[in-house]
Simulated assay, not measured.
Amino acid sequence: MPVTLDVNGQRYTVEPNGRRLLGVLRDELELFGTKLACGEGACGACAVLLDGKPVNSCLLLVEAAVGHEIVTIEGLSAGRATAVQEAFVAEDALQCGFCTPGQIVSATALLERVPTPSREDIHEAMSGNLCRCGAYPKIERAIMRAAGNA
């Protein structure tokens, strides 16, 4: 039975069929910014906002997302870079770029919750996001820059 999802402010009708949200976002809605990496919820590359909180879309069944506001990396900005995105570029915090969408989604959620985070706040909020390139110091600086603490 079809369900309706609210993604980036638009409504989509999809067949859940026991699928994960990540698959629907990429395969059906063609929102390719959200990445599949581990498929086990351990790396954060697939992070999206669900009612403003970061979740791993590779673990979330479509049915569990019904009735919630879903925001992907594409939905964070309306045609122009956000302060977090600009800070990631300024601090060169993207290296290969594969994990960057999930990092930016998680950082955005942190700054919505804690506008001037401490380093400890950043480490805790970003602990679910892995960067194989090891850009963690640059990611931390980017978040501090976006918060106005650069």
Rank of each mutant, 00 (worst) to 15 (best):
I139W: 03
E120W: 05
Y136S: 08
T100K: 02
N56P: 00
C99K: 02
L76Y: 07
V62T: 11
E69F: 01
P115I: 00
C99P: 03
T72S: 09
N129M: 11
A107P: 07
S106E: 08
L130P: 01
A93E: 04
L61M: 15
R113V: 05
C46I: 02
T116A: 15
E86I: 05
I73D: 01
Q103C: 04
D92K: 13
A47E: 00
A83K: 14
L49M: 13
A64K: 11
A142V: 10
K53A: 15
T116S: 14
E140I: 12
T100V: 09
K138F: 04
V105W: 03
V84P: 00
N56A: 15
P54F: 05
G52K: 07
L76H: 06
A125P: 01
G79S: 09
G134I: 08
L61H: 10
E63H: 07
L50K: 12
E69W: 04
I73E: 01
H68E: 10
A142F: 12
V71T: 15
A47N: 14
Q95Y: 12
A81E: 12
Q95C: 10
K138Q: 15
E112R: 15
E86K: 14
T72P: 00
D121W: 08
V66T: 10
L61Y: 13
P101I: 06
L130E: 01
S118Y: 08
M126E: 02
V89L: 15
Y136G: 06
S118F: 07
R119L: 13
G128F: 04
P115F: 14
A93G: 13
A65I: 05
T72A: 09
S57A: 15
L110E: 05
A87K: 02
I70R: 03
L59F: 12
H123T: 11
A83V: 12
G97N: 09
V84L: 12
L76F: 06
A109V: 05
S127F: 06
T108R: 06
R113Y: 07
A90N: 09
A135Q: 00
F88D: 01
G79Q: 13
G134R: 13
V48R: 03
A90E: 14
F88Q: 00
I122W: 06
V89F: 15
A109Y: 02
E74W: 11
V114Q: 11
E91S: 15
S77F: 01
H68K: 15
G44P: 02
C46Q: 03
L49S: 07
S57P: 04
L110S: 05
E120G: 11
Q85N: 13
T82R: 09
G97M: 11
R119A: 10
H123V: 11
V71H: 01
Q95N: 07
L49A: 07
L94F: 13
V105P: 01
V71S: 06
A65E: 04
I139M: 03
A125C: 06
I139G: 02
A78C: 05
K138M: 05
D51G: 12
D121L: 06
E140W: 00
V48C: 06
V62F: 12
I104W: 03
A45L: 02
V114C: 08
S57G: 13
E124R: 14
A64L: 10
G97P: 05
H68T: 00
A87V: 05
C133P: 08
A47I: 00
C46H: 01
L94A: 08
E91L: 04
C43L: 02
G102Y: 00
D121I: 09
T82V: 07
